[in-house]
Design a protein around this nucleic acid. Structure first.
Lengths: 195, 195, 195, 195
DNA sequence: GGCTAACCGAGACGGTACGTCCAGTCTTCGT
DNA sequence: ACGAAGACTGGACGTACCGTCTCGGTTAGCC
């Protein structure tokens, strides 16, 4: 609505400009240069307004991430398991390495290594949901009979997305189409055992 | 040697107590509370002595990591591929989650998400070497004929260790023996294609 | 009367609880810790209510002072100049150092050193009246012939109360009966010249 | 000397520019607008440098006062008591109302009304010394026989300077030559009793 | 055996950001 | 129309570390 700043709750305008500023500054300067003061200045907001609603800058980022990342990253549904997976893993890799939201995720995942509470929030707020989406193609394949009933889908998800995250977060190797093909071939030809 | 305030190069004692202090403080307080001033105070060393030899606190950690982590994490050589891999992946998981050196690695990997230069140094100094060690069992298996010649060992390594790192760094799920078994079974029954 | 959030003018209850809270907080925590927010919280009143009726916290104090100080400090009328003055100066000293109203006065006088506008208001609202009361015994003494007609009563007042204020506000020396005796003796034996 | 900033003690340059900046800002903006941040900015000094050496802004002022006020305000020695006192009281009034150092004193005296610790320091550091100087002309007059031996000089000092401080700090009335004459006449014709 | 160079500790310095407090303004609801 | 509530911008607070610096002390290695 309008900028209220009164007893009926917080200003939606302030909230939005803070999240936007945090997003922009992260993209421009990186996480190390992201400060509450910087966000406040960029958002045209008083520092106290940020501290009133967010305990720390990572909480701001968590909200910013929720804002602009919620929609994406749902695997396609082509009717064919291998195609679904190939398409999804490629778009996942592009998302993580090439988008602003992906940059926010990487920053949060990095910071989560230093902060167990953040790690817990990140898992609860985002990763659980994402893994549910990740399972979609596999569940459909089971329903179609492409995968044997009783396949351990959790492990299968890890075998598919694990190497992608590993390359992006750890080794820095590129996630190529060939690489994705290998992952998909291995998982569709030798799915994981009974759950 | 002894603490030499002299002209013959740096004090080995100061160097060691700095690395030790950094290690200890990381373990006790976490990365966020790790400061140059804190390390200096704990090590009984002047700040300037740290700045003289290390550009930043992550460089101190990098050295500390090199110090106490160099030896470990060489996969066993049992003569059997699956046993080698199972043993290695379990010990890798224990190392990452349960040891001080693993904690340093996780902190560095986390920080590397915010700092491309650190990421590059981490890869160059440690990850490359570690991946060479990771390839050992696979190379021996190729030599024994357990794996077809021409198998793409890089991808195979990613398929094996990727899910382990993913669970530890991202989802926080436990790396169980069953999970490792699945990874190993999938990779030994359906190895990756021609390199 | 009752608390009227209504259209009938300001709430006398709110006004009183604000002045009372200001008084209490000054006595408890001192001037430095006296804040509008603190007064509002203590008075159970909204900040805006204070800002609506008083421009600043010193204006609140000025009103609080007017409230509980108006009555006192009228010199006695014993029919004898020296007795009047002795009694008055002692009670003045006790008032300034020992009463809540005196504490408010000292705070206001202190603040007036930094704020000429406050100094002007303080003089206009209170000091002028007080000096008129101060002159009472002297005027009666002139009427009785105890003092020569044409004596400069303004200077005489300054010579009597000046040293008392000076000791209390500046040097912190105690105002003893002996000290007051000396002041009175000096002024009754050698009154000031023609005005 | 030079700006050290090392183990051999504080930087004289920083100290001086802080005191100078505090003095200037007090004169320009007044006590209310005098902030540590403002002093630091004006002095070209880091805030921490001020906090390292002074507990509060009033301590800075106390030092600034000591710096530029130590010399002045010694009563003249004309060989005649009345002349000494007249000259001194007039110069005291001019000092308090017209000089930068006097403005600092008035600010400190004002603040001392809110802060007993400051009051104590102000008395100990400055007022005691000043009162010793104040007694000078009276002691010489006793030595010359102008005043009876055994006169209570403390009370006499209060009777002389008390009304001057009172007019300047409290009532705001001007300290005229006539007023000073009256004070001096009263004190030289009717000095205070045995000490 | 004194001179000198390189490194040591200590710690003051100019800065930046922190997280908090309060000032003073505003808007809405309830009475 | 006024009061209670409370969110807002703004600015100073006092603290923690940053990275730089200068100093005096210590200890080789050299003349």
């Amino acid at each position: 609505m309008n900028h209220r700043g009164n007893r009926h709750g917080r200003s939606e305008e302030a909230r939005r400009s803070v999240l936007r500023a945090a997003d922009d500054l992260l993209a421009e300067k990186g996480f190390a240069a992201l400060t509450i003061e910087g966000i406040a200045a960029r958002a045209g907001v008083a520092k106290q307004t940020i501290y009133r609603w967010w305990p720390s800058k990572t909480d701001v980022l968590l909200d910013a991430y929720a804002e602009d990342a919620a929609e994406d990253l749902t695997p396609p549904d082509t009717g064919n398991l291998a195609d679904d997976l190939r398409g999804y893993l490629i778009s996942l890799a592009r998302y993580l390495t090439g988008s602003d939201a992906g940059a926010v995720f990487r920053a949060l995942a990095g910071q989560a290594q230093h902060d167990p509470a953040l790690a817990a929030r990140l898992r609860q707020d985002h990763l659980t949901r994402q893994r549910a989406r990740d399972r979609g193609p596999l569940e459909r394949a089971v329903a179609r009979g492409e995968l044997p009933a009783g396949t351990d889908l959790e492990v299968l998800v890890d075998r598919l997305v694990g190497p992608v995250y590993y390359r992006i977060l750890v080794t820095g190797q590129e996630v190529t189409e060939d690489f994705v093909d290998e992952l998909v071939t291995a998982c569709t030809s030798a799915p994981s055992a009974r759950s």
